[in-house]
Design a protein around this nucleic acid. Structure first.
Length: 634
RNA sequence: GCCGAAAUAGCUCAGCUGGUAGAGCAACUGACUUGUAAUCAGUAGGUCGCGGGUUCAAGUCCUGCUUUCGGCACCA
């Protein structure tokens, strides 16, 4: 007999070699029904794995995130089984569970799979799943595994890469066997609510030098309701797509004459200018100085900065008077020149210099995506020069600033600290260690949680990245704070210390929105195009009930609102009220004001908020006061 | 850049196996004179992304290019 200790601390005796499934069944049949897998001594295993000695046992029920991952992983296997039955020539790569589902990379040989082939695969999956095949696990030697997958070049490659002596496991269901670490569901009967979602090319082992396989994406849930609500979320994201809303709300456009170079339309321009005005205002208050450096600078500058060496393929260049020039992909080299114009004293520090700088980067054509990935964009950049002992305090100041700015938009975030790369890095390891510690200390001093990404820093220094979560539960990397141990050296930046000696300053690059263009794209989707009043391109729509009778009063109201710097549009068309309301609503204008006899007689306005049914009648002055207060509070 | 798909009126889309284009919305004109999410009627609007080819005939088939979309790779 062995002792099984449960998560609640209780201990029970069972026969040696009992499975978690049998343990669950012994407790209650209903528990067994909901069991997907088990954690034995903290290790996730199949439900049917025999437990050979005393162990801590945790049953993984179907409401656990781990359970969903197992379901999806098993769904990927089921899909592979279905594909194999339909396309016997197919060779399989890898098929993991991912954030919102699973995929499998498959080599179909000469056969080109299209979306229209997916339903057939789905059908085959459903048929196989309903067969209630049991899933079995088998441990084999490397030689044996190679024999099983002798005809499968990708699996063979994977097996060959496994360390000698490692226990290799195979999972089988019906006539299908896959190389897999597991764990898996005990039976395919669990897989009921799934869908194949899309098809794409994907490089074998994620390397663009390798052959491209066909990747089939799918998702899977334990209940029909969860699948439905996921599909609804996908629909909602599509509705909020900034490319679609940008077109519908006349914010920006793209032209095939300039792929990746967005055009800002009048309404988008207002949004953009409001955002920038806010940024300028806050940064001036924070003690930043503002500069603007040229778009295009001589190649020699980029040689000094190191960009010419490392990133030349992504830079646009041009020859002017026999001299090679490059359009800036980053603002820092220009900023360095500004710093060097003057002699600096330690008394000037921290010196905070901001720039909304338009940069150009030649992104791969396939990477372009609306405002999210463009070839020219405006970085809300700043460079902070200081002494090393100021780092902790300045980082803390920045985190406080970011915290405030993101909160204005209702965006939550988490921070990731990326540390020194293992190979490609410059400078002394001791300096890196100090810099990394300074970043971490700043966060700790503020009680901020953070995740460490070891080795993920830039070659010139460690960094903090701010990952925002939007209203659709997606993560966007926007803010960044990077310590740069490279440029001050390359540009020979100096300051004069208290002893009158020249010293090397420490420099920080930082961006808060990252790219103004991209951030606006995020805001469009985050707000679903219904911007808060301070950002809305049109804040108020004035609708005259009967243009003939009420236009004069409406014009007076408009003048008052314009005088108060509110953004107003009028609708004097000879249409039914409902028609005009509807249009204002679809344009997501925050306030609609209805003006008719009742309002004209007493200098009143009747307003209705976007998305709300009720309307309120107040004096024009009260309305102005209310909306101005709202705008001021953001 | 790579794999796959797509491009038709300002927008959203239809156009089957080839027979020189169609709807709804928007625009314009007129009627209606409107009180909270689409009043009615009419008019106009297109080198079917661009080039080449097959054919008596191409939006439709083939081909090159451009752009877009879904991914992959990339993202200092």
């Amino acid at each position: 007999m062995i002792d099984i200790k449960f998560a609640d601390g209780s201990v029970k005796k069972f026969e040696r070699g009992i499975s978690a499934e049998a343990v669950a069944a012994a407790i209650s049949p209903s528990l067994k029904k909901r069991c997907v897998a088990a954690k034995v001594n903290g290790v996730l295993v199949d439900l049917v794995r025999p437990i050979e000695s005393d162990a801590d046992l945790e049953l993984i029920l179907d409401d656990r995130p781990e359970a969903l991952e197992i379901l999806r992983h098993s769904s990927a296997h089921l899909m592979a089984q279905a594909v194999k039955s339909l396309y016997p020539e197919a060779h399989f790569g890898v098929g993991p569970a991912i954030e919102e589902g699973y995929y499998y990379d498959i080599d179909f040989g000469d056969k080109v799979l299209t979306d229209s082939d997916l339903p057939e695969i789905e059908k085959a999956m459903a048929k196989l799943a309903s067969g209630n095949q049991s899933v079995s696990r088998r441990e084999v030697s490397k030689a044996e595994a190679l024999k099983v997958f002798a005809d499968d070049p990708y699996k063979t490659e994977l097996i060959n890469d496994l360390p000698e002596g490692e226990i290799i496991t195979l999972y089988s269901q019906g006539d299908f066997t896959d190389l897999c670490r597991g764990p898996h569901l005990p039976s395919t009967k669990w897989i009921k609510h799934f869908k194949l979602t899309s098809l794409a090319g994907a490089y074998w082992r994620g390397d663009s030098k390798n052959k491209q396989l066909t990747r089939i994406y799918g998702t899977s849930f334990f209940s029909a309701e969860e699948l439905q609500s996921y599909l609804k979320l996908v629909e909602e994201r599509k509705k909020r797509d900034h490319r679609k809303l940008g077109k519908e709300l006349d914010l920006f456009m793209l032209s095939e004459y300039g792929p990746g170079f967005p055009f800002w339309l009048p309404k988008g321009m207002i949004l953009r200018r409001e955002l920038e005005a806010f940024w300028y205002k806050v940064h001036l208050k924070e003690g930043y100085q503002l500069i603007q450096t040229p778009i295009m600078l001589n190649k020699e500058l980029w040689v000094i900065s190191g960009h010419w060496m490392n990133y030349r393929e992504n830079m646009y260049t041009s020859v002017i008077d026999d001299q090679e020039f490059a359009i800036k992909p980053m603002n820092c080299p220009g900023g360095m020149l500004v710093y060097k114009r003057d002699i600096h004293s330690y008394k000037d520090f921290p010196l905070k210099v901001g720039e909304l700088g338009l940069v150009h980067r030649h992104e791969a054509s396939g990477a372009l995506n609306g405002l999210f990935r463009v070839r020219n964009f405006t970085q809300d950049d700043a460079h902070i020069f200081m002494t090393e002992d100021m780092i902790v305090h300045e980082i803390a100041e920045l985190v406080r600033l970011y915290d405030y700015m993101y909160s204005v938009f209702g965006l939550s975030y988490h921070i990731e600290l990326s540390t020194r790369p293992l190979e490609k890095f410059i400078g002394e390891i001791a300096t890196w260690d100090r810099a990394e510690k300074a970043l971490a200390d700043a966060l700790k001093s503020m009680g901020k949680e953070y995740k460490v990404n070891p080795g993920d820093g830039a070659f010139y220094g460690p960094k903090l990245d701010f990952k925002l979560r939007d209203s659709m539960n997606r993560i966007w990397q926007c803010g960044t704070i990077q310590l740069d141990m490279n440029l001050p050296e390359r540009f020979d930046l100096t300051y004069v210390d208290a002893n009158g000696e020249k010293k090397r300053p420490v420099m920080l690059h930082r961006a808060l929105f990252g790219s103004i263009e991209r951030f606006i794209g995020i805001l469009i989707e985050h707000y679903a195009g219904a911007f808060p009043t301070w950002l809305a391109p049109v804040q108020i729509k004035l609708i005259a009930v009967n243009p003939d009778l009420h236009k004069a009063y409406a014009d007076r109201v408009m003048k008052t609102l314009l005088d108060r710097e509110l953004r107003v549009e009028t609708d004097y068309r000879e249409e039914k009220l409902g028609y005009k309301i509807r249009e204002a609503q679809t344009q997501k204008i925050p306030y609609q004001i209805i003006l008719g006899d009742r309002e004209a007689q007493e200098e009143m306005v009747t307003f209705r908020r976007y998305g709300k049914e009720e309307s309120f009648t107040v004096s024009l002055n009260d309305f102005v006061e209310m909306i101005q207060k709202e705008i001021a509070n953001k």
